[in-house]
Design a protein around this nucleic acid. Structure first.
Lengths: 151, 151
DNA sequence: GAATATATACGACAATTGTAGAACACGTCA
DNA sequence: TGACGTGTTCTACAATTGTCGTATATATTC
């Protein structure tokens, strides 16, 4: 496997574009996640806005965030709308697609890509709060109807 | 945040040791996952065994795998049992802990650490089969009881 | 126009992760 | 003992990601 092939695969794995019925998904790094969460909420917004939003939880230098965001533009995760000297960023990937990417990556690594072993894992090894359980019950009752519809 | 602090936090995040009732979990890279899956299945085993097992899916050079495994020893994920000149590796982390680490990382990044939005996401965006929905229901029905026990 | 504030561009370094070949060491066999 | 096979050690490079200060550019105000 040559470097360029691997590079191409690596890219495809990060952002899998729509091919027929296949869905969009993206894989973000830790820092990218933090930044995208702010962008999804405040877009279009400047890098400075993102920095201000993250100053408490992360305390990153402005240039740290700007660099990361510029790289995300190169990767196709963000786009720049220019107004005079100001760059406003907006997302090119949806939160749903990013979530899907992260979820699928986890599923593939830890559960060979299958939901059933993950569910078993949750059942046997993960507990949840009462509140979460109540909310889940509500969603599950809807799930019955939705899944019938889907399949 | 100084470099050494960040380094310490980074380590703690990768392997969170047992503190009281808190659980074990680990975070593995892509290559580490591939290797651990083989080790869990064949341990104790030599690096060459791992390389042979992965030759079809990955075609990594022996030294690629050996290097990764040596680094994993340094990280505490693997341990070496020496028999003459031969090193047999066995895992220091369980598959459950690794799964938990990967799952929790995903949950934190994509769903702010909460199960409920993840389940909602699955139901609304991922499409689940009847069987999976049934497992979800089982999880929810057990959730009430288990969480009492765990918490 | 100068001073100031804001924002971008530039450049660089460190750590981690992935990748792997070459050199060296050990064990076995003829 | 030398040859050969197996396994470890050593070394190194590349890419990515994280991190950030400095230089430069732009816009505004006095």
């Amino acid at each position: 496997m040559s470097k360029s092939q691997e590079e191409k695969q690596s890219r495809d794995r990060k952002v899998v574009v729509k091919r027929g019925a296949q869905e969009n998904r993206a894989e973000l790094t830790e820092a990218e996640w933090e930044i995208m969460k702010v962008v999804w909420e405040k877009q279009p917004c400047a890098a400075g806005t993102v920095q201000e939003a993250l100053v408490k939880s992360k305390n990153w230098a402005y240039s740290t965030i700007k660099t990361t965001m510029d790289r995300m533009v190169e990767k196709g995760f963000l786009e720049i709308e220019r107004i005079r000297n100001l760059q406003l960023f907006h997302s090119s990937i949806s939160e749903v697609d990013a979530r899907r990417g992260e979820f699928r990556k986890m599923l593939k690594r830890a559960f060979n890509g299958a939901l059933t072993p993950m569910m078993q894992f949750l059942i046997e090894h993960e507990g949840i709060s009462k509140r979460e359980a109540a909310q889940l019950r509500e969603f599950v009752s809807r799930a019955g109807k939705k899944s019938e519809g889907k399949k």
